[in-house]
């Protein structure tokens, strides 16, 4: 029996895509079931597996993603992207298999829920999208004294880039930064420009800079509005908690 090859790639969209490219070569050589792709350091090394480190190559990543974009329905690429930013440990291997199925069967992959990998990709995408959608609404900016807007988030999935796309369009004429506290990533957006994401930024949990003078006023106004708009006779904390789970409230102005 052929020894299982575990390919270790970087945990990022580019890393996984270039991993898929290299994985394909190993797959042709050793067979489908003998190659696994993994994007996190294994907790436990298996004695009978061979571990191979892959280097991320943007060129390879572009080749794979362009090919996926060209050959399949846009939804397939969307699914792949959403899965790469998810918190799932196993995502690289699921995607590696998902892409192989896609090349086998084409666009039909979007309907074939009977295949476990397709089902899990669909579920992961949905989870990521829900979190993105929640943060689109629940993220709160504070105005700093240099007129920059600053926001802190702590999402489960790495949705910073998705949020960037959303707010780039919405707040095109603002300088803003969003900080992912858990992942130590910061997204910077300059007025009328595209945004940039910096990795491994240590910022003391986002406690820096000075709030602008009027910031306090608007926060208070918002709290007053938030408290007044509820109808006392219809109080329903359970419904509120279902719709707005506690983990989102950590950085929300009206709950601080």
């Amino acid at each position: 029996m052929e020894q299982t090859k575990v390919l270790l790639c970087e945990n990022s969209f580019e890393g996984i895509m270039s991993g898929v490219y290299d994985g394909w070569i190993y797959r042709n050589r050793y067979g489908r079931e003998n190659v696994r792709l993994q994007c996190s350091r294994p907790d436990n090394y298996n004695l009978f597996y061979e571990y191979i480190n892959l280097n991320t190559s943007i060129e390879k990543a572009v080749k794979v993603s362009e090919s996926v974009k060209k050959k399949f329905n846009g939804k397939v690429f969307y699914n792949i992207y959403m899965t790469t930013v998810s918190e799932e440990d196993d995502k690289a291997d699921i995607l590696f298999r998902y892409i192989q199925y896609a090349y086998d069967m084409g666009d039909r992959i979007l309907e074939c829920m009977a295949i476990p990998e397709v089902m899990s990709v669909t579920k992961i995408c949905k989870r990521v999208w829900f979190e993105y959608d929640h943060f689109r609404g629940f993220i709160r900016f504070t105005e700093m004294n240099n007129n920059t807007l600053k926001a802190k988030i702590q999402p489960k999935n790495d949705i910073l880039e998705l949020l960037g796309e959303h707010f780039k369009d919405r707040l095109a004429n603002e300088n803003f930064l969003i900080e992912d506290i858990g992942r130590k990533k910061v997204l910077l957006h300059k007025k009328e420009c595209d945004f940039v994401i910096y990795n491994n930024i240590v910022t003391d949990n986002g406690n820096y800079g000075i709030m602008s003078d009027r910031e306090k006023t608007y926060e208070d106004l918002w709290r007053v509005f938030f408290d007044t708009i509820a109808i006392k006779e219809r109080n329903n904390n359970e419904l509120q908690r279902n719709n707005l789970p506690l983990r989102y409230r950590k950085y929300m102005t009206e709950f601080i």
Binding site: G137, F138, F226, I229, R234, N243, M252
Partner: peptide, 15 residues
């Protein structure tokens, strides 16, 4: 987009 939910559990999206 729902921006918050008030104490009665209703969505607040507009001022």
């Amino acid at each position: 987009i729902c921006h918050t939910f008030s104490a009665d559990g209703r969505c607040v999206s507009l001022l």
